[in-house]
Amino acid sequence: MKNYFVTGATGAIGSALIPILLQDAGTHIRLLLRAKSPEDLASRLEALFSFWQIPVDDTATRTRIEALRGDVTLPRFGLDEVDYQTICANCTHIVHSAGNVRMNLPIEQARHSSVDSARNIIELAHHCPKLLKVEFVSTVGVGGRTNGAVPEEWILTRRGFHNTYEQAKAEAEDTIRAELEHGLALTVHRPSMVVGDTISGRIIHFQVFYHLCEFLSGIRTLGLAPGFGVARLDIVPADYVAKIIAWSSSTHITSGQILHSCSGPDLALPLEPLREQVRKAFAAAGRKLPPVINLPTSVFRALLTGVSVFMPGETRRAIKTLPVFLDYLATEQTFANYRTQALLADVGLGLPAPYSYLDKVLSYYLENTGR
């Protein structure tokens, strides 16, 4: 029997991973969930069952999932001794996909989320005698301000970062790198910007990509838009990343490797045509779109700051995050994925082209947001 310990099950990747793992009837999964109380824990687990479309009467599946109330950033995850020792005694696989995706946290808070949790995962791994594999979810963002293509390897050179999220994730990778030298069977997964699945566009939360689409539509900026130049956006569907992690957890071929789950230099989306597709989808869904007014980036920043004071509170708060996106757009950066794709092609995990699922992703978002 396989016994998985999974963090981040309520996130985009973790929520897509669990149904894949459950396809193996011999798999038992322990989920670490943050909750205020036992009742809140039960409610959060039920919400996950609903998202996974596991009916109440499917006890055979439900009993293979156990939720534990804890926090990945706390020593021993804040669990009591019995629960922690039970995990240690039985765990065969660890998947760490939890993380705070806010990009503008103070650096110490970002480190607490990324680095402290990495240390706690390592400590758990050292106490699991049956452990076969660890899957560690990072981000292509650890490349920071690397020029050109971010390589599919450890990045040891000094570099700047766009934000504290990237920096903390990079420091977390530094933390676990030494463990590989001591023989820990671990794979690092670096996804790019995660979107909904390839089949229906479903995703558990609307995060960075969807906020960016609101900006691309022009709705939040009164039609004002910066010059995009040659900037491109690298996206990847949640179910594809989850399939890679599930497969990787079942083999030692990937031990010690870094896998880039991303569209890569060949398939990353140029922002100009992406904006047109976003606007077309928004218009088809009945959203009223202002005409686009293209401006130099410096003028766009200044004007938007001025007019934002007249906007609703929610829009004003969203606009405060826009400098993060503009900072990315100023970097001509891609993410190498040729080595990863060569490995995955041999096991039937070919990379889906973004335009094969983008309409589904946008449709799901527009159908499930009442704006």
Results as ranks from 00 to 15, higher is better:
1 M>F: 10
4 Y>P: 03
5 F>H: 06
9 A>T: 07
11 G>V: 00
15 S>I: 06
18 I>S: 03
20 I>A: 04
25 A>N: 11
26 G>I: 01
29 I>L: 11
29 I>C: 09
31 L>Q: 08
31 L>W: 03
33 L>G: 05
40 D>H: 13
40 D>K: 11
41 L>P: 05
47 A>K: 14
47 A>W: 07
51 F>V: 14
52 W>D: 08
55 P>E: 04
56 V>K: 14
72 V>K: 01
72 V>C: 11
73 T>R: 13
75 P>W: 02
86 T>F: 08
90 N>L: 10
96 H>R: 08
102 R>W: 02
105 L>V: 06
105 L>Q: 13
106 P>G: 05
112 H>P: 00
112 H>L: 14
120 N>L: 04
122 I>P: 00
124 L>F: 01
126 H>P: 00
131 L>Q: 10
132 L>N: 15
133 K>F: 05
137 V>T: 13
139 T>W: 00
143 G>Y: 05
144 G>L: 02
151 P>Y: 07
155 I>K: 06
157 T>C: 10
160 G>A: 14
168 A>D: 02
174 D>S: 15
178 A>R: 13
180 L>N: 03
182 H>A: 14
184 L>V: 10
186 L>M: 14
191 P>E: 03
194 V>R: 03
194 V>N: 04
196 G>W: 07
197 D>Y: 07
200 S>N: 13
211 H>C: 01
213 C>I: 09
214 E>I: 02
217 S>L: 03
217 S>Q: 04
219 I>W: 10
221 T>Q: 05
223 G>A: 09
226 P>G: 09
228 F>V: 11
232 R>P: 01
232 R>W: 02
235 I>Q: 04
243 K>H: 13
249 S>N: 01
250 S>E: 11
250 S>T: 09
252 H>G: 11
260 H>S: 14
260 H>C: 12
261 S>R: 04
262 C>E: 03
262 C>H: 05
266 D>Y: 09
266 D>C: 10
267 L>N: 10
267 L>H: 11
268 A>W: 04
268 A>V: 04
269 L>P: 08
275 R>H: 00
275 R>N: 03
280 K>C: 14
281 A>P: 08
284 A>R: 14
284 A>V: 06
285 A>L: 12
289 L>S: 07
295 L>W: 00
302 A>S: 15
303 L>D: 03
305 T>Q: 14
308 S>I: 09
313 G>R: 15
321 T>G: 08
321 T>E: 12
323 P>I: 13
324 V>N: 13
326 L>K: 06
328 Y>I: 01
331 T>K: 12
331 T>N: 12
337 N>K: 02
339 R>S: 11
340 T>I: 09
343 L>M: 15
344 L>S: 00
344 L>A: 06
345 A>F: 01
346 D>F: 00
348 G>Y: 07
350 G>Y: 01
351 L>E: 01
353 A>N: 07
357 Y>T: 05
357 Y>I: 08
360 K>Y: 02
365 Y>F: 12
367 E>R: 09
367 E>S: 13
368 N>W: 08
369 T>I: 12
369 T>N: 15
370 G>K: 15
